[in-house]
């Protein structure tokens, strides 16, 4: 089970997470063997500078909406950094200080967790962009119900095509970005179904239009077929929206 939800987040945080795990192990050994940690003022100052930059960037973000969560995450990173500064100061005085080692680990973990929350907040914003496109398609699909002439059908097809292409591209990029294999497969399967159903829907509308226009029998049947395809497509797009919002944690909780 991947720890980080996306490959971008994983590529940024996985190396730090591994380093911290290593430090924890050494800390445990250090407590037993009495190994010391010399002055860490310089690397802590580098972390401090990076955190100050993050806080500065966070303050430039809009105060409303979910992006404000990034501000609270950056505050947590700032607090964690304070622990690192304290750890460096304590270690300067005593390289064997156990509380300093605890501060070092707590601070590093706090930075990891705060940065992870921050990146997740931004990832959620990206997901919302994709969901907006999906909802636009869902909304436009309902227009199928008012297509009654061939001219309407041409316009409908012309309008639906680009939106569908955009959605397919976004979903494909997103699935490639996910670390959770099951979510990737779910997105790919649902998107493929939607793509397969699109020509069936167009064909269904065409049959309905021609049957109705010519006054032939089978209008009800054509209507049912069109609606069945429309409902199936809507269900798949809703499934895509659901999966887009899943994280590994949600999946575990659901299981």
């Amino acid at each position: 089970m991947p720890v980080f939800h996306t490959k971008t987040i994983e590529s940024i945080l996985e190396p730090v997470a591994q380093q911290i795990s290593h430090l924890v192990i050494m800390h445990e050994e250090g407590e037993v063997d009495g190994k010391g940690i010399p002055d860490l003022s310089a690397p802590v100052a580098a972390v401090q500078a990076a955190v100050s930059n993050l806080v500065r960037v966070s303050k430039t973000l809009p105060p409303s909406g979910k992006l404000s969560q990034s501000f609270s995450a950056s505050l947590r990173v700032e607090n964690a950094c304070t622990k690192l500064v304290q750890a460096a100061s304590m270690l300067k005085a005593d390289p064997y200080s156990v509380p300093a080692r605890d501060y070092l680990i707590d601070g590093s973990r706090g930075i990891l967790s705060g940065t992870s929350d921050l990146l997740l907040t931004f990832d959620e914003a990206e997901v919302r962009k994709i969901i907006r496109v999906c909802k636009g398609i869902l909304e436009y699909l309902t227009v199928a119900e008012v297509v009654e002439t061939m001219e309407d059908l041409i316009t409908y097809t012309k309008n639906l095509g680009p939106g569908m292409t955009k959605m397919a591209k976004m979903i494909d990029e997103r699935q490639q970005e996910l670390t959770h294999q099951e979510h990737r497969v779910m997105l790919v399967n649902s998107m493929n179904t939607v793509k397969e159903l699109l020509p069936i829907l167009i064909s269904g509308i065409k049959i309905f239009v021609t049957t109705k226009t010519s006054g032939s029998q089978g209008v009800e049947e054509a209507l049912k077929n069109r609606n069945f395809t429309f409902e199936k497509m809507s269900a798949e797009i809703n499934e895509i929206i659901r999966v887009l919002q899943l994280t590994s944690w949600d999946e575990d909780a659901w299981a």
């Binding site: 730090v16 380093q19 940690i37 990034s70």
Partner: peptide, 29 residues
């Protein structure tokens, strides 16, 4: 983008710090 870059910088600096702490401990063994 700016946040992503800022997060990358923090991750890199923290990684360097933790690495320094781990390496220093190793040297003192």
């Amino acid at each position: 983008e700016q946040i992503l870059e800022a997060a990358k910088s923090i991750a890199a600096a923290t990684s360097a710090l933790v690495k320094a702490a781990s390496a220093a401990q190793r040297e003192l063994v």
